[in-house]
Amino acid sequence: MFATENRTVLICEHIDGGSVGQNLAANGLPTVPQIVMFALGLMRTIDELHSVDVIHRDIKPDNIILRDGDWARPVLIDFGLSRGLADETFTVYPARVGTVAYMSPEQLRGEKARKASDIWACGVLFYKLLTGNHPYLVTTAGLHIDDLADLVVGNPRPMLERVPPELESLVGRMLSDHEYQRGSSRRTLSDLKKLAAK
C-alpha cells in the first residue's frame, strides 16, 4: 500500500483569444482607445495584486491573454515568478528575476523587485502598444545584462503623434528611473479612468 500525502494543485482556466504578443503579430498595433481600455483592465488586476502585497515580476506580452481577442478584457497569467512582499525567498541578491526587456532599472541592477517594478513593466508594455517599439532599447543583442541598467534611464523616446499628451505623460511617469515617481497602481488606475472618460 502506498503512503498518501496532500499536494497543492493549481488548476488554471483555458482562455481563448491568444496572448498580447500573438495578437500584435497577427493584427498589428491596437487603436489608442483599445490601448486605454486594455491598460484599465490590466491595471485593475495589478491593483488587486498590489493591494494584498503581491508582485508579479514578469509582466510582458506573452503573459497576458486577451479573452476572446478583446483588448478590453486582458487576463494576466503565469504567476511562476510572483511573490508576496513578506514571503521568504531562496533568491540571493544581487540576482535578476524576470524578462530582460521588461525589467525595471532596479531589477537590472540585481535588486529586489518591488511594486514599482510592476508599474515599470506595464509602462514598457503600454509604450510598446502605442508605438511598436521599446521605450529605450533598440535591441539587447550583444549587450551584457550589466550594461542594460544604464540604457533605461532618463526620458523614453518620443511617442507618435497619435498618442494624446496626457497618455504620453502618464506612460512617461510609469517609466521614471526613480521608483517613487512612478506612482502606485491605484494612482495609475485613477488616471486611466480619467483618460477613458474623455
Rank of each mutant, 00 (worst) to 15 (best):
M1A: 15
F2G: 08
E5G: 14
N6A: 07
R7E: 13
G17P: 08
G18M: 04
S19I: 06
V20N: 07
Q22A: 15
Q22E: 15
N23T: 10
A25E: 14
L29F: 03
L29W: 00
V32P: 03
V32Y: 03
V32R: 01
V36H: 05
F38D: 00
A39K: 04
L40M: 11
G41Q: 06
L42Y: 08
M43G: 02
M43E: 02
R44T: 00
D47G: 04
E48R: 07
L49I: 03
H50A: 05
V54E: 12
V54Y: 13
H56A: 10
R57N: 10
P61Y: 13
D62Y: 00
I65K: 04
R67D: 12
R67M: 11
G69T: 04
W71V: 07
R73G: 03
V75C: 14
L76G: 11
I77E: 05
D78Q: 08
L81R: 06
R83T: 14
G84E: 10
A86R: 14
D87G: 05
F90W: 10
V92Q: 13
P94N: 02
A95G: 02
V97Y: 01
G98K: 09
V100R: 09
Y102G: 04
L108P: 04
V124I: 14
Y127N: 10
L129Y: 10
H134E: 08
H134W: 09
P135N: 10
L137T: 10
T139R: 14
T139H: 12
H144A: 15
D146M: 10
D146H: 09
D147H: 08
L148M: 15
L148C: 11
L148V: 15
D150R: 12
L151F: 08
V152Q: 02
G154A: 10
P156E: 00
P158S: 11
M159S: 11
M159Y: 07
E161I: 06
E161C: 05
V163K: 11
P164L: 03
P164G: 06
P165S: 09
E168T: 06
E168H: 11
L170K: 01
V171D: 11
R173A: 15
L175F: 10
D177H: 15
H178P: 00
H178W: 03
S185P: 08
R186F: 05
L189M: 07
L189A: 03
S190P: 01
D191H: 03
D191Y: 01
L192V: 06
K194P: 00
K198P: 01
